[in-house]
Design a protein around this nucleic acid. Structure first.
Length: 588
RNA sequence: GGACUUGUAGCUUAAUUGGAUAGAGCAUCUGACUACGGAUCAGAAGGUUAGGGGUUCGACUCCCUUCAAGUCCA
């Protein structure tokens, strides 16, 4: 629509003798209750025209109609100049879309970007909160790749620490050598089971100590189990063979379990980092910061940074005994990542409870003069809560990832069988379809909402399969593919076509928006924008489908045009959904 | 104590970043040539955009304030 902006600039110059910038022209889509396709907001121009909004609109409208060949007409309502485009222009627009092989694919922009996501703890299985993280990370990575970035998907696994030792200790004490093989339990679930057992036993001991007269605080510190766990952590840090062996074995179980879940979710990684390798990093950065005068040392030998001039607090970066805090290793890991990949930007997909942490981290790196610090971004997302409140692994109040995925597939199977439209498909094809639909519903449900919003999930209310949902869009795709396969044509010739219906206009305009949608969602790191676009497109197509016959049309050019329109719509739906990590079926 | 985020119809949400009568879906009600696939489409009803004030041609959007929910920092 650039020609309209240019035309308007000319009009303003000719009529009011003022030169404006492109950004001064306010273009928007015309609301569907008014006639036209493109609207210029003329309120801001009245300052220049020194006339009423209506008069300004009329004058510019007349100029444009006279001077631009593709403006068929206009109308003015208050400060809004609505322009109607000619059918020829829109058809030409559509030809443009189909002539480009990679319509909506951006050329490489030469920039490298890392997306770190998932980053699980290895002491428990994944739950719904992790699913949101994984889907967000994967989708953002896909969107960035589509918009021209060279993307590295990274996973920083939290594989050491006191929480892992808790699971290990409980297994050692109460596990009777239970293994995934012996119990038939998925490895991550087995380890998670002992994490819960630890907590239960630990609480018992606390209660006993309290009954014996200790305060809550004392009891928590003195319980034998927590002491043992701490000793185990020390042994681990000292490289004790037995502890390391146990740690490797149990983490191995967890990784096998995670792999299964990741595969089901369809997410993957190019690079794994492990905290057992990185937890000691960052101390050289402390020295660097002290030398540069960015950090300072207190009497107790602890190291701090003063961020009060930036509206934050004083922040501890190294304890008095020389041991790291979280932010120490995060600084070190950030440096490591940069040394490994030299990326221009780095995205951290992490929940909003760590907003403050990342604000501080990025600020510190900037103050240390790291040139790459300005490319860092915390993609913060809201927690997934249940009606009962927050999910807590220790207390077992979580929606388990594997369970939820299975339930979704089951529901898809049930719904599909009720509708009875998949006769003739092989059993394996059916199962694949149920998986596609079930996961499509789940993924769409989680991704259509803006990341930063908190998500309330009610396990008793099943995720919809109708309306604004993944399956709705998948259905639209299947329906189009069905029409196309019935038409059985490979080339769509409509050279002589010169008139189109209002819905066809809308559809062409919507298809044309695809590239800007990708650019916008990449810029905002927001899959939700693509999700909503895919829905609008599907909705619009269904409207078109009901209004206009396709295969039954006599006129072959109209028929070919409509088939072509269907073809492109299906392709763009598919690409959009794939960017969300959602597959679309040929039949359903 | 300080800081951050969120609040839109009964529920789940959108609003081109300051533009028109706040747009959808679910649920409710009504309708669609025995259908190119009804997991669809058309329509009805449902809103003081948490409350109050301000900025201006114009505010869900920006500023101030109160309330509610959540989170973080020693």
């Amino acid at each position: 629509m650039d020609f309209i902006i240019q035309g308007t600039l000319q009009a303003v110059e000719a009529l009011y003798h003022t030169e404006l910038k492109e950004s001064d022209i306010n273009l928007q889509e015309t609301r569907k209750e008014f006639e036209g396709e493109v609207t210029i907001v003329t309120f801001p121009l009245t300052r220049i025209s020194k006339k009423s909004p209506e008069q300004t609109g009329n004058e510019i409208g007349e100029y444009l109609q006279k001077n631009l060949p593709h403006i068929a007409g206009f109308n003015v309502i208050k400060g809004f100049l609505n322009l109607s485009l000619t059918s020829q222009y829109l058809i030409g627009n559509f030809r443009n879309i189909i002539s480009k092989d990679g319509f909506g694919t951006f050329p490489a922009n030469g920039k490298k970007i890392m997306v770190e996501y998932s980053s699980p703890n290895t002491n428990k299985p994944l739950h719904l909160g992790h699913i949101r993280n994984n889907l967000l990370g994967y989708s953002v990575a896909e969107i960035l790749a589509a918009s021209g970035y060279d993307v590295i998907k990274a996973n920083l696994v939290n594989d050491r620490g006191i929480h892992i030792c808790k699971s290990m200790l409980a297994w050692q004490k109460f596990g009777n050598s239970e293994t995934p093989q012996s119990s038939g339990m998925k490895g991550d679930h087995l380890v998670g089971k002992y994490y819960v057992i630890f907590d239960k036993e630990y609480k018992k001991q606390i209660d006993e100590l309290k009954a014996a007269g200790q305060t809550e605080e004392e009891a928590k510190k003195n319980a034998p189990l927590i002491r043992e766990a701490q000793q185990m952590l020390q042994k681990w840090e000292a490289g004790d063979e037995e502890v390391i062996g146990l740690w490797k074995m149990m983490n191995g179980w967890v990784y096998e379990g995670f792999d299964v879940t990741y595969k089901k979710l369809g997410v993957n990684f190019d690079k794994y980092y492990y905290e057992s390798d990185t937890y000691l990093l960052g101390k050289d950065i402390i020295d660097e910061g002290l030398a540069k005068g960015v950090f300072f040392r207190k009497e107790d030998n602890s190291v701090w940074i003063d961020l009060t001039s930036d509206g934050l607090d004083e922040k501890l970066v190294l304890r008095g005994d020389g041991t790291s805090v979280y932010i120490t290793q995060d600084m070190g890991t950030a440096q490591l990542k940069y040394d490994d990949f030299k990326m221009n930007e780095s995205i951290y997909v992490v929940g909003n409870e760590q907003d403050y942490h990342f604000k501080v981290l990025f600020l510190i790196l900037e103050k240390l003069g790291k040139s790459w610090a300005k490319g860092m971004y915390h993609l913060s997302y809201g927690m997934v809560d249940l009606p009962s409140g927050k999910m807590k692994s220790r207390e077992g109040t979580v929606v388990d990832a594997d369970d939820l995925i299975e339930e979704m597939i089951d529901t898809a199977r049930q719904r599909t069988e009720e509708l009875g439209k998949v006769e003739g498909l092989a059993e394996s094809e059916k199962e694949n379809l149920y998986r596609m639909i079930g996961l499509g519903a789940l993924k769409y449900f989680l991704l259509k909402v803006e990341p930063k919003k908190r998500l309330l999930f009610d396990p008793n209310e099943s995720i919809d399969f109708q309306g604004h949902t993944g399956p709705f869009i998948q259905y639209t795709h299947a329906r189009i593919r069905s029409v196309l396969s019935k038409a059985n044509v490979t080339s769509f010739d409509f050279d002589g076509l010169n008139a189109i219906t209002p819905t066809e206009r809308e559809l062409i305009l919507a298809l044309g928006r695809y590239p800007e949608i990708i650019a916008a969602s990449a810029k905002a790191f927001s899959p939700a924008e693509i999700a909503n676009y895919a829905y609008e497109l599907a909705k619009l197509y269904n409207k078109f489908y009901h209004e206009e016959p396709i295969l039954k049309v006599e006129d072959t050019e109209i028929k070919n045009f409509r088939l072509s329109l269907s073809n492109v719509t299906a392709a763009i739906i598919k690409k959009s959904m794939n960017m969300l990590g959602i597959e679309v079926p040929e039949r359903m």
